[in-house]
Amino acid sequence: MTTPPLVEQLTQKASLVSAVVRPVASMDEAMAYVADVCLGKEACQILASGCDAPLSDTAEALCQTKQEKIICAPEMPAEAMATLTALCDEKGISLITSGMRSRLGGIDIGLTMAVAGIAETGTVVVRSMSEEVRLASMVAEIHIAVLPASTIVADSYALEPQLVAWMGQPDYTAFVTGPSRTADIERVLALGVHGPLELHILILEDK
């Protein structure tokens, strides 16, 4: 089976900005991937997230609040949650769907559904009226977004009617392209500033 052109373009463009892109055949496969990434992650992401750096006392104290491996998956479909709950129980991972405000020191993985993809820029669109979705996708060290292949459009203009409809009431929607980044010191690229250190996009094949 050949890859549809929009999927191919999104994969290519997202990879250029350091996102990890994987096709998945089913939601079960996606959940297995999530659990595997969490398991394969260092027991403590101190190297990546900077806990090894000497810090001031307040910042140090905040680091101490995170002790176990946590996935936060707010607003995921019920059947996906059933699969993921079973996997997390089996592997000893803590799975939550809310309470992000007491986890601001950081969690391992924030898992969200993307509502659309933009092929031209390798972007996933995350609609996050829920504060839990916003925080899970920002505070996590790794943000994993499940993107149904059928929702990928060519460019941002193609998404315009949908966006305008959402904006008809209070709304919070983001275009997310790669992990958070900066080049503010000597124009040297560094991934993972205030947001995730990694972005994984799981492109869910159409049934």
Partner: peptide, 27 residues
């Protein structure tokens, strides 16, 4: 100076220091 700790001259690490130092400010 800000952290009262000697920081290495390593851009990747300096960025992470900012990540951790600023997180409590957000909270």
């Amino acid at each position: 100076e800000v952290t009262n700790q000697k920081q290495e001259v390593d851009i990747q690490k300096l960025v992470k220091v900012a990540r951790r130092e600023l997180r409590p400010k957000f909270c």
